[in-house]
Nucleic acid binder design. Structure first.
Lengths: 257, 257
DNA sequence: CGATGGATTGACAATATTCAAAGACAGTGG
DNA sequence: CCACTGTCTTTGAATATTGTCAATCCATCG
């Protein structure tokens, strides 16, 4: 089918040598198709695969004993999902598609191998893990110290920015396929309150609703409402690459010198 | 002074070869002493160093425009702090000591070098980054979908468990040097409400207060209150090591085979 | 001893939740 | 083309939870 989506993703950050491409390609099994609402994995299962998101959206979530749930993060095309489970034998959260999606699995145990073979890829993976953390802490701030209005606004903007970077070419980045229920569970609010908050924003023409989700109309104004600063989404690939080429060469990989 | 605290930390996870010890030791500058309340680093500064916590507690936090703040995580002896900043040129949050503390700095740019030289250390660092994420998502769930009572209880238990693993030998792990203000800022609550919640717990003899913090009296009962499950704190080092020894040897590092 | 940082309290207000019911909309099958 | 179904959205009223303000208390420290 489509050629390796993992390669496409990493090329987004740095130029890859032929060996690196080969390495990445070898990790990737056939892309797998998941209809909307599929459980990609479930808490407690063996964490044996990572995935890249080729198309569609997914989210990780945790079901609580009392029936409520917390959505931890959403994933858009280009994202790598599951790195968080590297430290654990079993999955620590559920992963669900929220639109029809195509995901590209690759086995977790090969990551260790890859780390040894390509310094560049190793560093890029580490960078992605760090970025994931940055996103999580911003979500933490969102949950802890912002009003419902700010929460909704900030969240929408984050997702739009992530779309910008990942797939400005193939999608309308102001159009987010999110139900109010999902947003509520992500923001720690009730559905009813998300609805009311969203309606406020609509009345000010900052957002609108589409048949299958939310639409951002006015990013600038919305940024003011949210106090949004996209800095935490901008990785510093440049100095990473610089560090890599500075370090003594011990491994026989390419990636110029 | 003290011999390398980084080595001590990593030996907690796996047996290190002499080369790995050397590598780690070379990273570490002289341990540095910080009085209680020091700003170790500030948002926006160059993120050029990581630290291990040798003694004392620290926390990362973000100051909000409206004067409030969000504490992101606390760090206890043995923790590595700053991995999150790997992807970024500038620090994305503040780091502050909350007791007198000794931290061991090591330069960020050497991490890349280290990744190339020791497969074991590379994987362990990656594992720690994944664990950090696990802690963050648990804090997320805490903020999003638990009552004040559950928040406080869950948080106290997490910190106690982390102390258990890190320094059961040198400290009373039920004794946490946390003010109510800090807890409030970590849990997204007001100080007043933390106080009331804590008083409830005290009246049920689940916790008590000491001159310099909180004391956990009854972990079992508190776990019930919180719905606490420590699984997310247990890394699976064993299968990680297994994966490492399975992977083909390309790098000239030790760590048996 | 006064100064400081933290803990505690009460009264009141704001914010968000719950419950329950109805409306909108797309997809399905007759 | 229409009724039927399921999912998502919208609304109102009552309630619960948590926040704010302001004052007091308490211990520690120089």
């Amino acid at each position: 089918m489509t050629s390796s989506c993992i390669i496409r993703h990493f090329e987004h950050y740095a130029e890859l040598g032929p060996e690196e491409k080969e390495l990445l390609a070898s990790l990737e099994k056939a892309p797998k198709s998941f209809p909307k609402g599929s459980l990609v994995w479930q808490q407690g299962m063996d964490s044996d695969y990572f995935f890249t998101v080729h198309s569609g959206w997914a989210c990780s979530l945790r079901n609580m004993e009392n029936g409520s749930r917390q959505v931890l993060d959403f994933y858009v095309p280009g994202d790598v999902i599951g790195l968080r489970e590297f430290a654990f034998r079993r999955r620590i959260s559920n992963m669900m598609t929220i639109t029809d999606a195509i995901l590209c699995p690759f086995p977790k145990q090969h990551l260790t191998d890859l780390f040894a073979r390509s310094r560049l890829l190793c560093n890029l993976f580490f960078m992605m893990a760090a970025r994931d953390q940055a996103i999580l802490i911003e979500r933490l701030i969102n949950l802890g110290r912002r009003s419902a209005r700010e929460k909704v606004a900030h969240f929408l903007l984050e997702m739009a920015h992530r779309l910008d970077k990942a797939c400005a070419d193939i999608a309308d980045c102001n159009h987010l396929p999110l139900t109010q229920v999902l947003m509520a569970d992500a923001l720690g609010l009730s559905t009813v309150h998300v609805n009311r908050t969203l309606n406020e924003l609509k009345q000010q023409s900052l957002t609108a609703s589409a048949s299958d989700g939310v639409v951002i109309l006015d990013r600038e104004q919305l940024s003011k409402v949210a106090g949004f600063d996209p800095e935490y989404l901008q990785e510093d690939v440049e100095s990473l690459l610089h560090n890599i080429s500075d370090a003594p060469t011990l491994v026989n990989n390419s990636s110029g010198g």
